[in-house]
Write a protein that binds this DNA or RNA. Structure first.
Lengths: 241, 241
DNA sequence: GCGCTTCGGTACGCCAGCGAACATACCCCG
DNA sequence: CGGGGTATGTTCGCTGGCGTACCGAAGCGC
């Protein structure tokens, strides 16, 4: 299903990444030769706060967390990135580094390109430019919605939203996840996640056992989540079809 | 101090807007003739959720709130925009509209340009493109930091941060502000703001009377705020000097 | 200077989520 | 098959902020 990590790309439409698929042919032909497939392992770091961002990653099947590290050392997730997008947007936006931190939340495949090469390619104008702008807008919207959501909605709703967003990006109904990890992403205690997840489980929306979750009733899970989920998803659809 | 609202711009360096000042001369000469100065009144709306964004506003002395409207009707601020930037970024990013909502939080001057004209000008490439990308990155960072901050920090710290960010953009140590308004921006109850603001007042950092605040000890207010304030400010300095 | 509106202060009971523990259950590895 | 480590379950008291409500006071328009 996924090509071996060492092989190069074998044609635009073989990719699962939506940005690469949407790229005009001519742009892809310039960019393609610089793409290098690789597998990302759990918690593998893609770039770190205020250090130069070395590569831009087009995500195929992994799921990336974009987090902000606070003064007290706590990290909080501000966005989730999957095959709809790319990690390393600051490079597109003309920054060498950013205060954010990106790592793989779910292991999987990605294609990377050196930051300098990517910057050059973007500099050519072309279709990549516009595509990435629209993607920026969608990611922008995701973060803005999360910011509001973090303030206004209770844990159970946010928990449901988070599961759905990860679910969409993983593609499979079951994936690895501990309460501990989720608690960090959501910025709450582990014990509090246990309660919220327990509620979702006993309601019959999800099932989990020791580090694995399975969504069994997606529709009702979505009904339980806050509207933020839909707002974010719809905006992605609208901007990066 | 501010030009009459009806007059056109009288030269690039007369502007207080940092983007316009940083714009290469050639770009400014193309864009300048399309700029139209106007005064923004309190709560004047610049664009609304999912409606076409008619104008892009370069802010001179007003302060703009970018808010997200939630399903329950509540609005929460996700970013503050002042003379360091511009309202209507989705136009730059190739969107016709956005789920956000922008309005004047503090009245003042701005220069606006029709969205279509702005889009054309950006399409020319040039210096505007890169400048706006870096600005996008800075705004991006502001929102990401706010998202984390909203989750992690107590009201008093966020309150201090908010006051500082507005202060920086207003330019004057005193400005109009009610507890009620601030409570909406911060996503808390009015009564809770009264407590937090009261604490800051009795600590001697600020003074207020019926809808006006005055910051009397900026340094100590900054010490009371969370580190998010500095992270956001420094990133603006770094990207849009 | 009067009255109305708007803003701020305060109080009540309530609840989500906190911090810190400790108890259990699962699963992998030896 | 039996540890040991890791994940989950549960408890305790605590606190920040909630919803609601009422009151006083400042300012504005007349």
């Amino acid at each position: 299903m996924t090509p071996p990590a060492s092989s190069g790309p074998r044609g635009q439409k073989a990719h699962r990444n939506r940005l690469l698929r949407a790229l005009p042919r001519a742009d892809y032909q310039r960019l393609g030769p610089h793409l290098r497939a690789l597998s990302l392992t759990f918690k593998q770091s893609l770039f770190e706060p205020l250090k130069p961002i070395p590569y831009v990653y087009f995500i195929e099947s992994a799921v990336i967390s974009l987090v902000t590290k606070l003064d007290n050392g706590e990290v909080i997730e501000v966005a989730t990135i999957g095959n709809e997008g790319l990690a390393g947007l600051p490079v597109f936006l003309g920054a060498v580094s950013s205060p954010g931190w990106a790592f793989a939340q779910i292991p999987g495949e990605a294609l990377r390109v050196k930051a300098a090469v990517f910057r050059d390619e973007v500099g050519q104008g072309g279709g990549l430019q516009g595509l990435l702008k629209r993607y920026t807008q969608a990611l922008f919207n995701q973060i803005a919605q999360s910011a509001a959501c973090n303030r206004a909605h209770g844990l159970e709703q946010r928990c449901a939203r988070w599961l759905l967003m990860t679910l969409d990006r993983v593609g499979a109904p079951e994936f690895s996840l501990t309460h501990e990890f989720m608690s960090q992403m959501l910025g709450v205690r582990r014990a509090t996640v246990t309660l919220a997840a327990g509620a979702l489980q006993s309601a019959g929306y999800i099932e989990y056992r020791r580090g694995r979750v399975k969504v069994v009733d997606r529709a009702r899970l979505e009904a339980r989540a806050c509207g933020c989920y839909r707002v974010i998803r719809d905006e992605y659809e609208r901007l990066v079809p």
